[in-house]
Design a protein around this nucleic acid. Sequence first.
DNA 1: TCTTGATATGAACGGTCGTTCAGATAACAC
DNA 2: GTGTTATCTGAACGACCGTTCATATCAAGA
Lengths: 202, 202
Amino acid sequence: MARKSGSHAEITGPRIRRAALSLFARYGYAAVSMRQIAAEVGVQAGALYLYVADKQALLFELMDAHMDSLMAAWEAVPKPNAPADRLRTFTDFHIAHHLERPDDLLLAYWELRSLTPDNHKAIAAKRRAYEAELEAILRAGHAEGVFRVPEARITAMAIIPMLNGCVGWYRSDGRLSVADVQVLYGRLVHGMVAPDPVPAPV
Amino acid sequence: MARKSGSHAEITGPRIRRAALSLFARYGYAAVSMRQIAAEVGVQAGALYLYVADKQALLFELMDAHMDSLMAAWEAVPKPNAPADRLRTFTDFHIAHHLERPDDLLLAYWELRSLTPDNHKAIAAKRRAYEAELEAILRAGHAEGVFRVPEARITAMAIIPMLNGCVGWYRSDGRLSVADVQVLYGRLVHGMVAPDPVPAPV
DNA sequence: TCTTGATATGAACGGTCGTTCAGATAACAC
DNA sequence: GTGTTATCTGAACGACCGTTCATATCAAGA
């Protein structure tokens, strides 16, 4: 046998990427074989190479596309001026974006080590650029005196894994909605950067 | 050739575990071969099976030993009564313990998925027991009115990945000491659970 | 010194890996 | 209806996988 009926490049290509994303996220890059990906798509392993240079390129393209889409989506978000509102906009965005793409987040944070040095460098740079957005908000709030963030970079690197954590426990059919999660984490982050409270009057 | 001079079970066994821990943490369980572990120890692959039933058991024993040592160490810590102090004791402990054992933390949080279902169940249970310690502190503080933690479980699951994050960026020869990290994260966590500040007097 | 048990080698097992490629078939242009 | 091209198969490649085992050597006790 050879070509299958109804086969199309513009269908098979994305299906390969979706299958790879899902399998990589669930079992890890190293634990997933090209044959498993092919089976998920309903195709033989050799067919994958019509669409992907090799396994490493497949991983890189998935991660790179995610970082680009993340950054583009964030840039498209209207941003208020006040640092507190801006911070809440960031956390809301980050949570919503990743709760809709949990597999992308898993890849972005678990599979950096599976990239070749060059690919690693490229993805890490994009990740730093994204984290710098949060850091800039923290610095602005600190400069205006509405935040108390003596270590903006470290605080950003504390906030982000905290936000990411929600992907681990959130269930779309659970008790909480995405908006609930946004409110909960929004309050937590707000507390982290709020200036010391005024002492209670005696 | 056969037995090497100076070989001893009580030396080779731990060396295998140390090498496996280090390699698993760096490259991931699935990406590391028994031959790589053996090479790191300076031994042939077959010799590993004098000390380990199989690769899966090796991973499980590493994770299980870590969870036991973590729990035992926490139980040995003297705990103040006031929830705020108790919370700070927990975050200090968690940070110090894991900054000294970064590989253990990486395994505990990245390789759960590499465990067989039975092994996964055992490790996940121990992890929940540890996280319950933090949750109990939050609940106690909330009950006493010194914390504002309407969702203790979720807050605990927000705090822990945040604390874990420090393992990703901390460098022992860097600008900050472990104590500095403890102070920084201690303040962040304190802000997360602090009740709404008293409004400033007009 | 001789024996015995602990410790390691190194070759081998069947299986799976990522990847390539000649050949076969379906879809499409004319 | 015919020829062309895009798409996929199925077999094959060498390499490496986890694991086993007969064999060899070292360490220690008698």
